[in-house]
Each structure stands twice: as structure tokens, then as C-alpha cells.
Design a protein around this nucleic acid. Sequence first.
DNA 1: TAGGCCATCTGGTCCT
DNA 2: AGGACCAGATGGCCTA
Length: 156
Amino acid sequence: MQASVPTLTQSSLCGFSVGTPVLPTVQRHAVSGIRLTEIDRAPEESLDTRREDELRDVEVKEEESEAGDPAWLRRRASQKKKLSHSRLDRVRLRRIEANARERHRMHGLNNALDSLRKVVPCYSKTQKLSKIETLRLAKNYIWLLSEILSTDQKDI
DNA sequence: TAGGCCATCTGGTCCT
DNA sequence: AGGACCAGATGGCCTA
């Protein structure tokens, strides 16, 4: 007894126009300025090592702009004149560390999104779905699979 | 050139 | 106090 199972097609899954041009992965990375080494780095490399790299990058950037403090710091300094020099340094350090953590967090989020891209239909090694496309497609895919499941159960 | 997509920075809020 | 999370702002790059 064969049930009428919904056909799994790209057009039924994609909530967006299939013809939408999607840039190749490498090109996208060039676009976004992500270093390919960040994404393609071997998984066995520890997160700590990556964090150290990120922090080092930030320190370099900070040194480059040493000529003048960032706007947020100047603002804060003027608003809270009572802030001692050491306290200001501490605030600055905490901001830098928070930025690094935030960057790390977003990288984790992007890695999870990449994993999702690989299990969703439409996945291509040469064409990368955008974030929003990936999420919409995943939602539609889950919906379709649950439809298939419920259809099968009715036939039992 | 406008619009889309993205990474990053930042300050606010909540939680431990 | 400090970390996680979030949303807004910003700027860079690419394509139509």
C-alpha cells in the first residue's frame, strides 16, 4: 500500500526563489572579509588557541588605533570623569575581551549554521545559502518531513 | 548606484 | 563583577 507522499522538491522546500543567485562559498568569504582559515581550520585545533588568535588580532587593531581612543571610550571618559586611569584601563580591557567573546560566539553560531546548510536539501558545495535562506529552508524541510511522517502513520 | 549579505563593535539586559 | 545573549549601528564587498 503506497501512500501519497508529498513530493520532496526544491521548490516546495525553498521559501524563496530558486533562481536567486547565490555566490560561491569562497567568493562569499572574500565578500564578508572572513578569513578562510577561520572556517576551514582543523577541528582538532583547540578553541583556546583560536581565542588567543582572535585576542591577538584585536590587540593589533587596538595598537593601530592607539593615536586616539575609540569614540566609546572617549565618551565614557568624559561622562564619568571620576574614572581613574587604572579603572579606565580596566574598562577598556573588558570591552576588548567582550568583543572577542562576542566574535567567538558569532563564529559558533555561524558554524552551527554551516552544519545546518549541510543537512538541508539544496546544499551545494559551490553555492552557499544565505543565513535567512538556510533558516527558511530548514523550517520548510522539517515541516515536510513531519507531513510525510503523519501521512505514513495514517496508512498503518 | 541601490540593495543584499555579512562581520564586527557596542551598550543594554539578564543571569550566576 | 563578569559572562552570555541580543539588537542596533556601521562599514565593506558584491551583484543587478
